[in-house]
Design a protein around this nucleic acid. Structure first.
Length: 327
RNA sequence: AUCGGUUUACUGUAG
């Protein structure tokens, strides 16, 4: 029931279970976590402790750590970490990855690294979790360095996920050469048909200033989604090529791809940087007509567009008419 | 029977 989306039914079956074993508890805790209800999962664990008949195992802890991660409950997570050590489960690979993710999402990369270093057996997921932690905190060089260590220990990526963490690291640090090497590995592994990998490659090349390569990857992709188009569009916008950005948008529409919120932000940015005030206003209207509700970020782009071109009063009026609080 | 790593966007300060 939980996995099929009916948490209510899962919960009512759970409550009616006369005896609950470890898997009963784990399944219900997992259900809450998978539905983004981290606090409910932690509360249920309290019930389990009060019940006193079941002892948590590595699966329980893995879900509880995910619950903490999802609600940013670092302190709770630290308490669980202590319990995990008391239970002798700190060397478990599954728990290790969850702890790394908890600490890194809560901004405590040193603790994440501490867990990583202490893990006796590291698999690709462990390495990737740590790489992802560095990458997400803008430490692209550390992420790439860790990948180098991973390879020197004879570990190779098994699927696209590791690349999906590394490519943004290259993108954010402008590491074009490393990005190209990764691209080579991706081709050797036959992963270039993966849409997410393709999107990341387009983004990486665009951010590294190589729009030609970005375009090549884009053109060769058999499957594209709105993110693929947005990544390319962002590239053009970022390189102050408003013409290409607009052309890209037109092509996108021609091919029947529905623009989303992000698409319009990319477009508005392109117009803003190029001083295309009128066009920007047109796109803003188009977005409203498409039934896309503008967010604070769209209004910010509009204020930027108007402000840059010296239309301060219009910019101010735009922000005052905005149906949200400013950020 | 229950379990871990996942891609794209904007502004503002200094340089």
């Amino acid at each position: 029931y939980a996995k099929c989306g009916s948490l209510d039914e899962a919960s009512s079956v759970f409550k009616r279970q006369p005896t609950k074993n470890l898997v009963t508890w784990n399944s219900m805790i997992a259900g809450y976590v998978q539905h983004g209800l981290g606090q409910a999962a932690l509360d249920l664990y309290e019930n389990m402790l009060q019940d006193g008949l079941t002892t948590a195992d590595q699966v329980t802890f893995a879900f509880l750590l995910q619950a903490c991660t999802s609600i940013g409950a670092l302190h709770q997570g630290e308490l669980l970490h202590a319990n995990i050590c008391e239970s002798g489960l700190e060397s478990d690979g599954l728990i290790g990855s969850c702890l790394i993710k908890l600490y890194s999402k809560c901004g405590s990369l040193k603790d994440a690294r501490g867990v990583f270093d202490k893990l006796p057996m590291k698999d690709v997921v462990t390495w990737t979790a740590m790489i992802s932690g560095y990458a997400e905190h803008g430490l692209g060089q550390e992420a790439l360095a860790l990948y180098a260590s991973m390879q020197s220990e004879g570990m190779t990526p098994a699927d696209p996920v590791t690349f999906l963490c590394l490519l943004p690291a290259c993108a954010n640090t402008g590491a074009l050469q490393q990005g190209k090497q990764l691209h080579g590995q991706i081709q050797e592994m036959g992963l270039e048909a993966d849409v997410m990998v393709g999107n990341s490659l387009v983004d990486m090349y665009a951010k590294c200033g190589s729009m030609g390569d970005a375009r090549k990857v884009f053109d060769r992709l058999l499957t594209r989604d709105v993110v693929t188009w947005n990544a390319l569009l962002t590239g053009y916008a970022e390189h102050n090529d408003a013409q290409m950005a607009v052309q890209c948008f037109d092509n996108m529409l021609q091919q029947g791809v529905e623009p989303d919120e992000t698409t319009f932000i990319c477009l508005l940015v392109a117009c803003s940087h190029a001083g295309l005030v009128h066009e920007g206003q047109q796109y803003f209207k188009m977005m409203l007509e498409d039934g896309i509700l503008p967010t604070v970020q769209h209004y910010n782009c509009m204020a930027d567009l108007l402000g840059r071109s010296g239309r301060l009063k219009e910019a101010e009026a735009m922000l005052q008419a905005m149906p949200f609080h400013h950020n």
